[in-house]
Simulated scan of single mutants.
Amino acid sequence: MTDLLTLEGVHTNIGRYHILQGVDFTVPEGKTTMLLGRNGAGKTTTLRTIMALWPASKGEIAFAGRRIEAMATPDIARLGLGYVPESMAVFSDLSVKENLILAARDGELDDKRLDWIFGFFPALRKFWLSRAGSLSGGQKQMLSIARAIVEPRKLLLIDEPTKGLAPAIIGSLIECFAEIKRSGATILLVEQNFHVAQQIGDTVLVMDNGTIVHRGAMADLAADIPLQERLLGLSLEAHQ
């Protein structure tokens, strides 16, 4: 199994706060890796550090064998990384169509890929010409994910995509992520909905206090309730 992403001894300081304190992990190519942990463990900071939105103060980050920790965010994105932030960060004054055009290569949308995206998120077709700011929270999340996959990506970094969403929309997201994985993409996904994590995760990383404290198969963690409670302070079963 080839590792597409590798972090070695990564530290991140934000102001006077030392958030990441020597993060080490790998993300295997073609798999979905879940990044779990309690609130404040450093999960979002990890994703933002990989994308150079917050610079690593120490350590190495390699994507497909290439060091990227000193690269600018746009250059990292051009290597084939897509990022879906927790805040969604859609362009509120632009239409759904315009948001996707901005994310597309050379501003050209592929009709076949759009139809594929609409299959998961039909609301985006319905509100194609509507301002993104007028969408509901769930619809904005759909748009944020659609922007990240409007072009094929080698690696997707996704931060809590199901937060605040209705169960029906979560079901569509699960189908979407499964299809993205079948297409050959690799996913690193931060998620607090452990039922979702159990369904789509192949491997799992657990963070605590800015370091990785557990790594292994998602199925093994899902089957070990005492380990879940020790690492996360609760069980997956309690959140299904």
Rank of each mutant, 00 (worst) to 15 (best):
80 G>T: 07
49 T>P: 04
60 E>L: 15
83 Y>P: 04
72 A>W: 14
69 E>N: 15
37 G>A: 05
61 I>S: 11
91 F>E: 06
79 L>S: 03
60 E>K: 15
74 P>W: 08
48 R>L: 12
56 A>R: 09
61 I>K: 11
68 I>Y: 11
91 F>D: 02
35 L>N: 07
51 M>P: 07
37 G>T: 06
29 E>R: 08
80 G>H: 10
61 I>W: 14
74 P>Q: 05
54 W>E: 09
36 L>Q: 06
89 A>Y: 06
45 T>P: 06
46 T>E: 03
41 A>K: 06
72 A>C: 07
71 M>G: 02
73 T>Y: 12
86 E>Q: 12
70 A>Q: 15
62 A>I: 06
75 D>A: 15
16 R>V: 09
63 F>N: 04
26 T>P: 03
65 G>C: 11
85 P>N: 09
86 E>P: 05
81 L>K: 01
30 G>D: 04
29 E>T: 07
78 R>Y: 12
18 H>L: 00
91 F>A: 11
24 D>L: 05
21 Q>N: 14
80 G>I: 02
82 G>P: 01
87 S>I: 10
94 L>V: 13
77 A>G: 06
89 A>L: 02
97 K>W: 08
56 A>D: 02
27 V>M: 01
20 L>H: 04
64 A>Y: 13
15 G>M: 11
67 R>K: 12
68 I>R: 08
33 T>Y: 05
42 G>V: 02
40 G>A: 11
67 R>F: 08
58 K>E: 13
41 A>V: 07
27 V>E: 00
85 P>F: 14
72 A>K: 14
41 A>H: 03
28 P>T: 03
73 T>G: 06
31 K>F: 08
59 G>C: 12
92 S>E: 09
57 S>W: 13
17 Y>Q: 07
